[in-house]
Simulated assay, not measured.
Amino acid sequence: MNPLLSLLPASKRKGMHARLSQQFAYISSQTGDQRVTSHHSRFTCRYGYGRSAESASMGESGQDFAAVRIHKSVCCFVLCDGVGLSYRGDFAARYLGSSLMGWLEEGRDLSADQLKMYLDRLASAATEELDREPLEHESGFMRSVLEDKRRQGSQSMYICGRIELPNRGTRGRLRLAWQGDSRLRLWNGTEEISELFDHTFSTAERWSTNRGLIGGKPHWYERSIPAEMPMRLQVYTDGLSDLDPIREPVPDEQIQVLLDASHTGGLDDDAAFIELQW
């Protein structure tokens, strides 16, 4: 128990616990792993993060980024997969993810067109921030190579969304946006309806600090949420591709086995995982 709560009378502690459970935030650390963990409120949220074996052994940051924020009946989330062949894909994933979270939480004029304009405008600010990042090599030929690569920009793929649950007989709202090949899966009750998103995932689509959107405008999905319809949303990066054929809920320990990847000597690629149920 929170030590401050223990000082309150039991009747007040119960109310305080209820208020605290309505707010939750998770932001992945790119320099460490996150074991599969759950949060329970009006949403049930599971999340986990694992760096590739190569990144972990060399003490490098992971290229993925994940974040979830819940406030009462509203949940916003982002999942970003930095492009390793670009300059500092870890930077693009973190910068894009943090920026998208702010845009989603503001919650005004959420649409595909508004998101496109926002992401194109975001590129110049990201470039300025990237230019302030120190180069990994101080001098010589390698510095020149890195400077040229930095000018070409840092890139990331992404999935993001905002979920507004039904309140007092009114329907809720689900909004999702994405570019890239990370996994986006949705269930109505026990029926998976992810075929709605077929043929919309491509590594050629991404966001760049240098060019803004690459490969087209964001994919956008929006629908109402009926009060009586339980739903499950699952997003993860390609480091957890072993989940692709599994339609049933997967226990925490089995997801953790995939994140640890001890059976293969570690992950071949970074992996980030978010699952939301309501």
Rank of each mutant, 00 (worst) to 15 (best):
E164L: 12
L135P: 01
D244R: 10
G153F: 00
V68C: 06
T203V: 05
R108Y: 02
F77N: 00
L130N: 03
D81P: 01
R162L: 09
M58L: 15
L7F: 10
S241E: 14
L130Q: 05
A126S: 07
F77H: 02
E147I: 08
I27G: 04
L276Q: 02
M117S: 06
T237A: 06
M1Q: 12
P230K: 12
H199A: 07
E248I: 08
L8W: 00
M229C: 12
W207R: 02
S73R: 15
A125G: 13
S73A: 15
L276N: 01
R19A: 13
D198K: 12
P245S: 08
C45V: 15
S208W: 01
G140C: 12
R151K: 12
G180I: 02
E228I: 08
L110W: 00
A92T: 06
G15E: 08
R88M: 13
R173V: 11
G189K: 11
F197T: 07
R183L: 10
Y47D: 01
G212A: 04
G50W: 03
R69Y: 08
M16Q: 13
F65Y: 15
S224K: 15
G50R: 06
S41A: 13
T31W: 10
L243S: 10
D90M: 05
I163C: 05
L122M: 08
L276M: 13
F273A: 05
I225L: 15
I159G: 00
E275V: 07
R19N: 11
L79T: 03
M229P: 03
E106R: 13
L79M: 12
E205D: 05
R223M: 11
L100S: 00
I214V: 12
E147Y: 05
G50T: 10
P226Q: 07
A112H: 01
H263L: 09
E195M: 10
T31D: 13
L4P: 01
L233S: 03
L267M: 11
L276C: 10
G140N: 13
R206V: 01
S52F: 07
M142F: 10
Y47G: 01
S202I: 01
L20N: 09
S124C: 07
D238P: 02
S11P: 00
T203D: 05
L96V: 03
R211D: 02
R35F: 09
T127C: 08
H137F: 12
Y26W: 13
G265W: 11
L5N: 04
S11M: 06
G107R: 02
P251W: 04
A261T: 09
A53I: 15
E248G: 06
K14F: 08
G172P: 03
E105A: 10
S262W: 12
F91Q: 02
G239V: 07
G180F: 00
F201I: 04
